[in-house]
């Protein structure tokens, strides 16, 4: 916000940085589950922002088996690893992740 902070030594620089980090972190900590409409009644579900400690590949495998759908891993510059599944699996993903011990507040369902 304040560009002056970058040039001069600011006693609260650490504070601000921490705050920034926290803010950004809290945004990035969310696991976003989105849906996209395809043609007809088809849709895609994407899962973005999985914490590092979970292996996307293994999770994808588990998803595919559990939800009986196909899916793929997509590497995105901004979003990192994104799990993409066929069909509307949002609620199922949420339940799955919650059963794995991920707090509900960290999972954000998007879409209608």
């Amino acid at each position: 916000m304040n560009v002056g902070n970058l040039t001069t030594i600011d006693p609260f620089a650490d504070e601000a940085q921490n705050f920034d980090n926290e803010d950004v972190g809290s945004q990035q900590n969310y696991i976003h589950v989105r849906i996209q409409q395809r043609n007809g009644r088809k849709s895609l579900t994407t899962l973005q922002g999985l914490p590092k400690e979970y292996s996307s590949r293994k999770l994808l495998k588990a998803f595919k088996k559990e939800f009986a759908c196909n899916g793929t891993l997509i590497e995105d510059e901004e979003a990192g690893m994104v799990i993409q599944l066929q069909g509307d699996q949002r609620v199922k993903i949420k339940h799955f992740l919650m059963e794995e011990g991920i707090p509900e507040k960290d999972i954000q369902l998007h879409g209608f």
Partner: peptide, 13 residues
Amino acid sequence: VSAIKSGFQAQVG
């Protein structure tokens, strides 16, 4: 308030 982010958009079509 948080800015609106569309996040990852899969390739459709």
